[in-house]
Design a protein around this nucleic acid. Structure first.
Lengths: 302, 302
DNA sequence: CCTCCGCGATACTTCCTACGTATAGTGATG
DNA sequence: CATCACTATACGTAGGAAGTATCGCGGAGG
């Protein structure tokens, strides 16, 4: 049985007349008769009653036609759905990110993507940079946002683009002596109790402070915790500049002198991932983060 | 797009290999390549990634394959459903009947039909004989059970078979003088207050009693009401012998002398009705009412 | 009652296209 | 670099779907 048989049977049921049904199909009447006969032979039942007043489906014909309509509808949906999937309008995107990314570039990107691709199911989860690249390589994520380029086994299977630069800033409670200052020296900071992210304490902060200073610091899992601890006088919080987007009445920020540039925020995905949803997401990222457009343009082959 | 394209795409997705998929389809590899290419051209998207490790569906391919499975499933169901409809296993049967038929032949017939054809939706309604044939002709019923052969306009469009003979019996309250008697004479009955069905009072009872007797009788709409009225001493109930199947402690029956044969119970349907459900129902009737088998055998062409 | 007409089925031819065979192109692997 | 495995391409063939002509049948009308 071929789709042709279904189309012919439906046309015949609609026109109740072999000649007119054939004309509507753009064929002559005899082949229509032949094909309907072949269909009835395959089904093993007479599907149409040929009467003098017209051609009408039998009970078996009615049952058959209902399914035939369903089958043809599925076939057109196959075409439509394939196109939508190819354009990244349907599907799934699993995004992992560090807390600070949720402050600046992600809200705009995610919001715009959800508006333009409402039928893509998104999974969002906060995790640290190294867990992000590991989950990417394990196939558990499609996009990871972290700080610094992924290193280690399999990192060459990932493509990574910078999506935002950052400098170190200090966060203090509103009652702290630093609270009114526009900036504070690193040497001064080293004499204060510090609150830093566990991630940073193990990596880039080691090029700013002596190990002994960091070993005495309070560790926090994410940027919001640093801000909260600093606000309640647990110490001087250290984090990226976008931490200033956290607005609390009991919190003040100071630039750190000399300026220290943190590793960039980076967005990674599997180089071998050809998912149209990913491509659509990257295209939204390019529109929302003009700074990194050049790099993505190459990757998207524009 | 033809069903062949769907089958080929599914086989390719299953085997992840053009050669083996082609073999499983019973064709050579080049035509499979050609057909898949044609399908991808029609859909407008690449549906499979040909890699060194195998052939894998793209995102568009996955979406397409899901619909393709649905479409092919509908097509096989079209065959199955047509067969079931042709055998009368699915569909609808609208049955109208007079109350007395519900006492004897219908419970067995309907019960057996429902067991053997559980997916046929049945509509049952009690109505009098003339309303039954009218509803048949109006296309509102498929089968009608009444007493006596339908007469009047359009009756020749109906086929009618007898499904049960009946004689007149009297029903009286347990306290009535007739209660202990095996039989009672018609002349004796004529001097009692009577309870009869409105239908019968207007037709066959007129050949048993004087019009004056019937004009004084209490009229009931159906056989159960006759029995109820007789039981509470409203008069002597008259009805078909199968009324004896109504067992109430406060009710007794007497044969009527001389025996008077009522018009037979008849089952009617449209002669032009070729519904397989009707045929299946008639076949059950034939098995359940051996008396009328001969007549139905002819009609069913056995 | 016969004829005519409309419609579907059948007979036969034509042509498209799906299939088979042979082979070239391509990417991975030793 | 050679080889191998696999898919794509080229081309001839054959099966079947469509076209043309005609038959058979059932209903309407004279």
């Amino acid at each position: 049985m071929e789709a042709r048989h279904l189309r012919y049977a439906l046309a015949l049921a609609e026109h109740q007349h072999f000649g007119r049904a054939a004309a509507s199909l753009g064929i002559a009447q005899p082949p229509l008769s032949t094909q309907i006969a072949a269909l009835e032979r395959e089904v093993g039942e007479r599907l149409f009653d040929r009467t003098a007043r017209g051609v009408f489906p039998t009970a078996a014909g009615d049952a058959f036609l209902a399914r035939a309509r369903g089958a043809l509808a599925e076939m057109s949906l196959a075409l439509v759905d394939a196109g939508r999937a190819a354009r990244g309008e349907t599907g799934r995107l699993r995004l992992g990110f560090i807390g600070s990314a949720l402050l600046d570039p992600l809200p705009g990107v995610i919001g715009r993507f959800r508006r333009t691709h409402p039928e893509v199911r998104m999974t969002l989860q906060e995790l640290d940079s190294s867990a992000g690249s590991a989950a990417l390589l394990a196939g558990e994520l499609d996009v990871a946002v972290g700080r610094g380029s992924p290193r280690g086994t399999g990192a060459e299977q990932l493509v990574t683009v910078p999506i935002g630069a950052d400098h170190l800033v200090a966060a203090v409670s509103v009652g702290h002596p630093f609270a009114g200052q526009r900036s504070v020296d690193v040497e001064r900071l080293a004499r204060e109790p510090l609150v830093v992210s566990a991630d940073a304490a193990g990596s880039y902060l080691r090029s700013v402070f002596e190990p002994a200073v960091l070993d005495g610091a309070t560790l926090a899992r994410d940027i919001h915790t640093i801000a909260g601890l600093a606000a309640c006088c647990a110490g001087v919080g250290l984090g990226p500049e976008r931490m200033r987007l956290i607005t609390r009445k009991d919190l003040r920020f100071c630039a750190v002198e000399p300026r220290f540039r943190l590793p960039d925020l980076q967005m990674s995905f599997r180089a071998a991932d050809s998912s149209p949803v990913l491509a659509a997401f990257l295209s939204v990222v390019r529109q929302n983060c003009p700074d990194v457009g050049g790099r993505l343009d190459e990757l998207l082959g524009v």
